[in-house]
């Protein structure tokens, strides 16, 4: 069953079209990534999913129910980690989490239990009584996450949760995203950090100018622009090399010698590095380095949109 189903979603601000007729579905258990430059419409879409903005046109269904009609149901089942920190600096960490969880109707011992659980989860279990104003950027981000997950939502939306934090906290956050996913949460993740999206997302949509240009797994996205990769092998001397024997290796489409580097172009889906190297050894070629060059998501984005992610 699809956790989220978006149909013909459009948002206009005056005559500026921020989100332009988006169709999308997110299945249960996915970590769905929204990839796009600043101003591409990611946050607008997310705010509409979270009912913070009213759509100009189109429908959003959460677990099969229209969120405009089942507002309370939608709110109970969505947890949002907003781009801008939403925590109170002069309340303790514990008070912050229990305040937000309380908004979802948790009371008494259950509230206490879930608050503890959420704080433990983000690694702030020993910071109950501390005030966020003394926290580092990463800790504030983690507290922000704890506030969003204490009521155990089915769908967690994270809008750029790793902006401006140290690498350690970043790893911690990425790990907790995976852990939440393992626990059965579906996650929507937006970022303009390509590596993060590439690392954790099971499916990715590339958004530009309010439209979804392509979506799929990262392999599918990469295959939209090419199905070959370059293998660069540094060799000492290639006089004894029989180039034709390399051309016969399965998957190889082109072989070229460039200075001291043997440049081989090969199909992405074929794993033929072993065969290639075996042939080189048999021909007594001395190998100095081996490098595989596959297109990154950054390249995919650049090729499809003609723009860099961080303009």
């Amino acid at each position: 069953m699809n956790v989220l189903e978006i149909r013909n979603l459009t948002k206009k601000f005056g005559d500026f079209i921020a989100v332009d007729n988006i169709n999308l579905s997110v299945a249960e258990g996915e970590i769905f990534g929204f990839l796009g430059a600043n101003g591409a419409g990611k946050s607008t879409t997310i705010n509409m999913i979270a009912s913070l903005l009213r759509a100009t046109r189109g429908e959003i269904e959460l677990l099969g129910r229209n969120i405009a009609k089942h507002n309370k149901f939608a709110k109970m089942n969505i947890g949002i980690v907003p781009q801008d920190l939403a925590i109170y600096e002069d309340m303790t960490a514990y008070e912050n989490v229990s305040f937000f969880a309380g908004l979802y109707g948790l009371r008494g011992s259950l509230l206490h239990e879930r608050t503890e659980e959420a704080l433990q989860f983000v690694g702030l279990g020993d910071k109950h009584r501390s005030f966020p104003r003394n926290f580092s950027g990463g800790m504030k981000r983690r507290l922000n996450i704890a506030c969003a997950i204490a009521h155990r939502p089915k769908l967690i939306i994270m809008d750029e949760p790793t902006v401006g934090i140290d690498p350690q906290s970043r790893n911690y956050i990425l790990n907790s995203v995976r852990k939440l996913n393992d626990m059965g949460c579906t996650i929507i993740y937006t970022s303009h950090y390509m590596e993060e999206v590439e690392e954790i997302c099971t499916r990715i949509a590339i958004v530009d100018h309010g439209k979804i240009i392509a979506d799929g797994t990262k392999e599918q996205l990469k295959s939209t622009i090419t199905d070959t990769k370059d293998i660069w092998i540094g060799v000492k001397s290639a006089e004894s090399l029989k180039v034709d024997s390399l051309r016969n290796v399965q998957g190889v489409t082109a072989v070229r010698m460039d200075e001291q580097i043997l440049k081989i172009n090969s199909k992405t889906e074929v794993n033929n590095l072993n065969d290639i190297i075996q042939k080189l050894i048999r021909d007594r070629v001395e190998i100095r380095s081996v490098e595989e060059q596959e297109p990154s998501l950054e390249t995919v984005f650049l090729t499809l949109t003609g723009r860099n992610l961080r303009d």
Partner: peptide
């Protein structure tokens, strides 16, 4: 430009 699965015309 003809890519693997897309055509792009700019």
């Amino acid at each position: 430009q003809v890519l693997n699965r897309f055509i792009k015309a700019v």
